[in-house]
Design a protein around this nucleic acid. Structure first.
Length: 423
RNA sequence: GGAGGAAUGGCAGAGUGGUCGAAUGCGGCAGUCUUGAAAACUGUUGAGGGUCACACCUCCGGGGGUUCGAAUCCCUCUUCCUCCGCCA
């Protein structure tokens, strides 16, 4: 949700930037501005009425004290009338405020200047590429076959106990998962992110706070009984730690890292591209989240990008970085870099990380602010990124590190796995 | 799950119908004093809306109600505490 103040001051520039999303925001922006004006007019009238009512009430009190009940009772009538009036205004105001809120919810974040215009993923801009794509033997296998061959992952068992997209990791496969989680958490901690463990279910308010609701209602698993949502990413609980929080500027930046499983309904995804680990309903991810001042948020984004680069390079996975175009940019993001690892056996790039700056978009919903000295609180900027999502990393590792008769474990992981080869 | 109690400003804690946005203490900030610091003293110190700035309006866990008037009374939800039950 864009801050109203920003919209009032930069309506034209915002609408122009939204064009890059392929969205003509002009109608909704002007609707918002009109509703805002209407809301303010109503608010002013209501305030005026309430002020009069307050004055009358005070006078009534004083008249009673002064022993003038007749005059007091006469004033009561005025007061009652004002009250009725204010109730009506209150209702109108409520309607206007709700309409305004709904309109604001419909408007995505303003793309940063760097965001290229474009329709879809084909228009994303490749800004960086690293590593050599290994040449594999002719009989190289995709990861889902490797997983079966070495008994690392059992997809059928997952289907049996839950359903498609809920794999069961076994033996060295399970150990490798745990190793990756520990490794990522350790690296993130070394880079200054504080490890934190958060709930895997969140309430409705948290869903709204980070923007999953009302937008992506159908993408989350919903526990009706208690009205809780299974988290689609650690971003939701971690960022919501700061809902309704005013930080001192000295407390910034905030840097957290958290491992959580992630649950996604992925309604509407089918086909060969969702095979194996490519797309799951439950997967593991280590996330990094930052809260920054507006001046530093883009610097922070760059830092996060280079941190993720370091992780991938340490695993020796060939990757590229995409700057998402307007059409592919998430609803809440102002600028996003996607990291893709080359999956050699599948001969395609797999997204393993997404690093974004949300500027004040989430903070505005969250009411996450910071304050310096006696200054008025102002909205902070929030950022997050995957560091990293496990399944496709695992897919990449299995496929790219396969050799005759086994799979080689990257050196940095060996202290965590306790083995250097799967065979 | 059952029975009681509670929820007030950054924290602690008064306030049971009429200038209460709210005493007091602690903390924070500024100043006096000091070579500097501490102590002491003085002042200041919630958020949002609104305004050029004032005025003014809203907020005492959330929602609703009673009343001319609610932090204070009623209903309801949530959360926390104590006891009982159950339990990793």
């Amino acid at each position: 949700m864009l801050p109203l103040q920003t919209l009032r001051e930069n309506a034209d520039a915002i609408a122009l930037a939204m064009d890059k999303r392929g969205l003509d925001a002009r109608p909704i922006v002007s609707k918002i501005l009109n509703l805002d004006q209407e809301r303010r007019n109503l608010q002013a009238r209501l305030d005026q009425t309430l002020a009069e009512a307050n004055t009358a009430s005070r006078e009534i009190g004083q008249l009673f004290k002064a022993g003038k009940p007749a005059e007091a009772n006469a004033l009561k009538e005025t007061s009652s009338h004002l009250k009725a009036q204010s109730k009506e205004l209150q209702e109108q105001l409520g309607i206007a405020a709700e309409a305004l809120q709904e309109a604001l919810y419909l408007l995505p974040n303003t793309p940063n200047d760097l965001v290229p215009a474009g329709q879809d993923e084909a228009d994303n801009e490749i800004v960086y590429q690293w590593g050599e794509i290994p040449t594999l033997e002719a009989d190289a296998l995709p990861h889902w076959e490797l997983a079966g061959k070495y008994d690392l992952i059992d997809f059928e068992l997952g289907v049996k106990i839950t359903g498609a997209g809920f794999p069961v990791y076994k033996g060295k496969g399970a150990r490798l998962q745990r190793a990756l989680i520990s490794y990522f958490l350790d690296r993130n901690t070394e880079a200054g992110y504080q490890e934190i463990q958060v709930p895997h279910l969140v309430n409705e308010a948290s869903g709204y706070g980070t923007g999953q609701l009302p937008d992506k209602e159908g993408q989350m698993y919903h526990v009706q009984e208690d009205n809780l949502y299974l988290i689609p990413t650690a971003e939701v609980p971690v960022t919501n730690l700061f809902r309704d929080v005013i930080l001192e500027k000295a407390e910034l930046p905030v840097r957290y890292t958290a491992y959580t499983p992630c649950f996604r309904r992925e309604a509407g995804s089918y086909g060969a591209h969702v095979r194996g680990l490519n797309r799951l309903h439950q997967f593991d991810k280590v996330e990094i989240v930052r809260v920054e001042t507006p001046e530093h948020s883009y610097e922070a984004l760059e830092e996060m990008v280079s941190h993720v680069k370091g992780l991938l390079e340490s695993l020796n996975l060939p990757y590229r970085i995409l700057r998402l175009c307007g059409g592919d940019l998430g609803f809440t993001s102002a600028l996003t870099y996607d990291f893709e690892v080359y999956s050699t056996a599948q001969q395609r790039w797999l997204e393993v990380s997404s690093v974004s700056n949300f500027e004040a978009f989430q903070a505005n919903r969250l009411k996450l602010r910071f304050r310096e000295g006696g200054e008025k609180p102002q909205l902070a900027h929030t950022l997050n990124g995957s560091a990293l999502a496990l399944p496709r990393i695992l897919a990449g590792l299995l496929e790219n590190c396969q050799e005759a008769g086994g799979i080689r474990i990257p050196e940095v992981l060996v202290p965590y796995t306790g083995f250097d080869r799967i065979s």
